[in-house]
Structure formats: structure tokens, C-alpha cells
């Protein structure tokens, strides 16, 4: 669905930002781009949507080179959720905001169909529709921006640090909705995220970046268990993974607090039996 072929990119007046980046995401995959600040994560997702054009190599979305079409023309297929929802929101009510997004990408469906689609999304996101977006909390505004993207039913969803500055409850709320979209509609998700707990909970694949290069791409748990790789990318793995690796002795496979608790209980049981 998303394919990077030897992509390099440099900002004007700056050195190379992205070098020889190659990877592929299949339809329905949920990938997280991880790495330290300045690793090139945000540049990578901007390249994926065509907001930036590669200096060399090419980016393909569903087989189409991003250089051959405009970003706005691709909006129906690719949804992009920015870190700051205030840049996306421009209408006075949540309903108008969702309709604005729909009218730009699905105008051919007719006004009544768009209205019905907007009402469905409003119900799905528990909005009445009459709320003033700028009077809502930051987390709620992020949900408005997400609802507006969901309404267009994109095939690819690109998220640039969608949970930054949100409390845990809001973070879970947004991520659960993204996961539902990913699972139910087979939407390909590419997400930049600094919260490794969120990455572990929601993503299935991790793209590890450092210094504008891709260090590794693979299943999230495998990536997090690779100590050398994590150190090289200056990434701290989730606590439960770190704890498991530190304890060793069969605990390494525990990747959730529940699994860790079960492993500890099993271990105790085993020790009790051997004492007897």
C-alpha cells in the first residue's frame, strides 16, 4: 500500500535529512515510526503523503508515484492527522467541520448523502454536532480532526504524533478509534509516536529510524526486545519489555502487565513445587 524505494530527501540549506529509505507497508498494516528527535520520522510521514517530494527515489501509494498527483487530489485515499489539531479545524461547529472535509473529497455523493455520513460519524465519535470545536479540550479537538478524516473513509491513515499532550484516557480514546478503523476497514496506518507504551499496545510493525536512515523494520515486540537496536536508535523500550528482558528466565516473552503477572505467579508456583 505504501512503498518507499531508495528515498532520499534534503531540506533546502540543510544537509541530507532522509537517506536511502526503503520499506513497504501492506494493506491493513499498523506501523509505528520510532526513533529519537531528529531521526527523520516526521519527514518520512510527510514524504509518504507527498507533502514533501523526494530528492531521489520514489514513494508509491497503492502503486501510484506521489510525484504524479497533487496532495489534495489524494486526500480521499490518504488521511493525515497532524500533531496540532488547530491547524486542521476551521469551522464553527463540529458538524460543519466534518461536512467541510466531506465536501472537499466526496462532493460527487450529493449533499444529503454527505449529511447522513456526517451524522453517522458524529454518533460514532459521541458528538452532538453543535459543539464549537475551538471551545473543546485539546483531546476533544484532536478527536474532531480525526472524525473529519474518518468521515472521508481513507485507505491510508498517516498520524504525526497524534497523542502528544493528551492525558491517558484521551490517548486511549483516540487510539482505540484508530485501531477500530484499522481492523474493521483494513486501513493502513503509519504513525509517528514517541510513547513506546502506545506503540506496543497498538502497532504491529515498527520502523526504527536514526540519523535519517532506517535501522530496522519488523514486528513491534521483536524490535523492542533487540537491546542493541534500541540503544542505537536511542529509544527506551516499554517498561514491561525492559523488565522482562532484565529478569530473563522466561519473563522475556511477557509483553503486557497481565502476562508479566501471570509469568510471576507461574514462576512462584514452580518454585513452591520444587521447595516441597
Amino acid at each position: 500500500m505504501i512503498r518507499f524505494e531508495d528515498v532520499s530527501f534534503a531540506y533546502p540549506d540543510q544537509g541530507s535529512s532522509i537517506r536511502d529509505l526503503s520499506f513497504e507497508l501492506e494493506r491493513g498494516e499498523f506501523a509505528a515510526v520510532i526513533g529519537a528527535n531528529g531521526a527523520g520520522k516526521s519527514t518520512t510521514v510527510r514524504l509518504a503523503d507527498g507533502l514533501l517530494r523526494p530528492s531521489s527515489g520514489r514513494v508509491l501509494i497503492d502503486g501510484e508515484d506521489t510525484r504524479n498527483s497533487q496532495v489534495s487530489a489524494r486526500a480521499r485515499k490518504v488521511g493525515f492527522l497532524f500533531q496540532n489539531p488547530d491547524r486542521q479545524i476551521c469551522k464553527n461547529t463540529v458538524r460543519e467541520e466534518i461536512l467541510f472535509g466531506l465536501r472537499t473529497v466526496r462532493s460527487e455523493e450529493g449533499e444529503s448523502a454527505l449529511q447522513a455520513r456526517a451524522e453517522r460519524i458524529l454518533a460514532e465519535f459521541s458528538f452532538t454536532g453543535d459543539e464549537e470545536p475551538f471551545a473543546l479540550s485539546r483531546g476533544q479537538r484532536q478527536r474532531v480532526a480525526l472524525a473529519s478524516i474518518f468521515a472521508a473513509e481513507p485507505e491510508v491513515l498517516i498520524l504525526d504524533e497524534p497523542t502528544t499532550g493528551l492525558d491517558y484516557r484521551e490517548c486511549c480514546h483516540i487510539m482505540d478509534q484508530i485501531r477500530r478503523m484499522n481492523e474493521e476497514r483494513q486501513v493502513t496506518v503509519m504513525m509517528v509516536c514517541h510513547d513506546m507504551e502506545v506503540v506496543l499496545d497498538y502497532a504491529s510493525k515498527a520502523l526504527v529510524m536514526a540519523g535519517g536512515r532506517l535501522l530496522a523494520a519488523g514486528p513491534v515486540r521483536e524490535v523492542f526486545r533487540n537491546r542493541e537496536l534500541m540503544e542505537k536508535a536511542s529509544v527506551l523500550p516499554p517498561q514491561v519489555i525492559s523488565l522482562g528482558l532484565r529478569l530473563g528466565d522466561g519473563y522475556e516473552t511477557a509483553d503486557t502487565p497481565e502476562a508479566m503477572a501471570e509469568a510471576v505467579l507461574a514462576h512462584r508456583k514452580k518454585e513452591g513445587a520444587s521447595d516441597e
Binding site: 496532495v71 489534495s72 487530489a73 488521511g79 476551521c90 473529497v105
Partner: peptide, 19 residues
């Protein structure tokens, strides 16, 4: 910078600034 960010975000959601 803010305006350019807003225009980028709106382009990404289908507003044809790039056309």
C-alpha cells in the same frame, strides 16, 4: 509559519491549495 502549517494541513484534507 503557522499559516503555512494550516495550509499544509488543509491541503492534506483535500483543499486544493496545491492546484
Amino acid at each position: 509559519e503557522e499559516m503555512s502549517g494550516i495550509m499544509e494541513a488543509q491541503t492534506a484534507r483535500g483543499v486544493a491549495f496545491d492546484q
